[in-house]
Design a binder for these strands. Structure first.
Lengths: 119, 119
DNA sequence: ATCGTTTATCGGCGATATACGATGAAGATC
DNA sequence: GATCTTCATCGTATATCGCCGATAAACGAT
């Protein structure tokens, strides 16, 4: 997840890669889904929902917070975790842009080869 | 990237997680962008674009192929790699659905608290 | 003050990811 | 046939991940 790659594209795509990495685990996807249903929730609640050790869940929550996809209020007794809907939407949009760019490029090249080869 | 987690949600979210994991590296994002510009391209071309060893690039391409985001025709001399636009769009849509679900849940809960608390 | 609850962090283990060089296979070129 | 190019794979080294148990910190209740 942490890379010290070689070129400028690394810096350019690093935020997107970090966000997607945070979502590249079934447990973390499920955490987002679970937390979206409720208003805000604590770690213990997530532990009850998933079948993972408390320390493991705490780690997953930390990953999501560091990726900016969750916000947390550290109320020492029972911290509240909440989905950052804007950040999630932003990440989704970036991926959608990539998909659209690829689709547009293909459409363009299809049109070109039709124009050149006439079918 | 390969997890043998505990519950049913793992299987449910595994495909999404696998796809996002494939995109969770700047080099692989850049590979998709690069390949979308061209029609189809070979490994050497990608090696020239990125500043990574040929073996490393070959690995990244393999990851993308195994995730279904790239198609490859193994022409032994110079294999052709091509973006699977449909697969990429599908993955983007799944993430968009997750984001929308979270947004919808928040909107609903906002409306509820407004109704209860009158602001 | 003591106990119970909840959470975050530490340390360790096994598995995986990332990167590279070296090697071998397959086609092209001379 | 000899050589070059291109690519996939192997082997290796290092770093990170994912998981857990154990522990410490913070708060509430008794």
């Amino acid at each position: 997840m942490k890379h010290r790659s070689t070129s400028e594209f690394c810096c350019a795509h690093a935020p997107m890669a970090l966000g997607l990495a945070a979502l590249s685990h079934p447990a973390r996807i499920e955490i987002l889904r679970h937390l979206s249903g409720l208003d805000a929730s604590c770690c213990k609640d997530v532990v009850g929902h998933l079948r993972l050790a408390q320390s493991t869940v705490s780690q997953h929550l930390k990953v999501l917070v560091e990726a900016g996809l969750l916000r947390m209020r550290p109320e020492r007794q029972s911290s509240r975790y909440e989905v950052d809907v804007e950040a999630l939407k932003a990440l989704s949009d970036v991926l959608a842009e990539l998909a659209d760019a690829c689709a547009a490029a293909r459409t363009r090249s299809d049109a070109a080869s039709e124009g050149h080869l006439n079918g």
